[in-house]
C-alpha cells in the first residue's frame, strides 16, 4: 500500500472513531422509525445529490445528511441548513436506486429538531411555515397576503419583494380578504390539541 492510501485509511479510521466515540445510534433508529426509510440501505451513490435543485443552498448534500445520521452525528444533522432547505420535491426519491424517501427523512429530522429545541439553522424557513399554519388555523385556508405581511414583520425585511407584492395586487393575485372554511371551530380544536401535544 502506498503512503497516500495509507494516510486516507488513517483518516477514515479517525472518522469511524469519532462515530463510535460520540455517535448517538439511537438517533438513526428514531429517524428510521418516523420516516419508514431504512437509512442503512444508502450506499452513497449520490444520485440524490445530483438531482437536488437546491443543493447549492444546503450545507450538507442530501446523502451527506444520511451519512451523518449513519454515524450518529445527531447535532450536525439537527443544526444543519439542509433539513430546512429541502422542499420535499421528491426529485431525489425518483433517482434513488434504494427507494429512500428523502422527503420523509427530512420531515422526521425537522420534527426531532423542533421537539428537542435544536438550534435552527434557517429560522426564516420555520417562520414562514409557522405563518402558513397560523393562517390555516384562523381561516382553514391560506391567506397569502396576510402570510406575507406577517412574515415580513417577523423577518424585519420590508423591502425585498415590495415590487412583487404590488404587481400581484395590481393583477388581483393577492386577495385582500381570506377565503375561509365555515366550520373554523373544528380546525381550531385540532390546532389546540396539537399545541397541547407540544408541537410545532
Amino acid at each position: 500500500m502506498n503512503k497516500r492510501n495509507h494516510k486516507n485509511n488513517g483518516n477514515l479510521q479517525r472518522v469511524m472513531t469519532i462515530a463510535a466515540g460520540n455517535g448517538d445510534m439511537g438517533f438513526v433508529r428514531e429517524v428510521e422509525k418516523r420516516s419508514g426509510a431504512d437509512l442503512s440501505a444508502c450506499f452513497h451513490c449520490r444520485c440524490c445529490a445530483g438531482g437536488c435543485p437546491f443543493i447549492e443552498a444546503m450545507d450538507y448534500a442530501p446523502h451527506g445528511i444520511i451519512r451523518l445520521a449513519q454515524l450518529g452525528l445527531r447535532d450536525e444533522v439537527l443544526q444543519s441548513a439542509t433539513i430546512w432547505t429541502c422542499v420535499g420535491c421528491h426529485t431525489c426519491s425518483i433517482a434513488c436506486p434504494m427507494a429512500i424517501d428523502m422527503a420523509a427523512v427530512m420531515d422526521a429530522m425537522r420534527g426531532i429538531a423542533l421537539e428537542t429545541d435544536a438550534a435552527i439553522a434557517e429560522p426564516d424557513v420555520l417562520d414562514f411555515h409557522r405563518e402558513v399554519l397560523r393562517s390555516i388555523e384562523r381561516y382553514g385556508r391560506t391567506h397569502k397576503l396576510e402570510i406575507m405581511m406577517r412574515y415580513k414583520v417577523k423577518t424585519r425585511d420590508w423591502f425585498t419583494d415590495m415590487d412583487v407584492g404590488l404587481r400581484m395586487l395590481a393583477k388581483r393575485k393577492l386577495d385582500l380578504l381570506p377565503s375561509k372554511v365555515k366550520n373554523t371551530q373544528d380546525l381550531k380544536r385540532m390546532f389546540r390539541e396539537t399545541a397541547e401535544r407540544g408541537t410545532p
Binding site: 420535499g88 420534527g111 399554519l133 390555516i136 385556508r141 372554511v181
Partner: peptide, 13 residues
C-alpha cells in the same frame, strides 16, 4: 380546508 401545503408536513407529521 387547506391540504397543509408544504408547511404542515414540514413541522408536524
Amino acid at each position: 380546508n387547506c391540504c397543509g401545503s408544504s408547511s404542515a408536513h414540514s413541522v408536524d407529521a
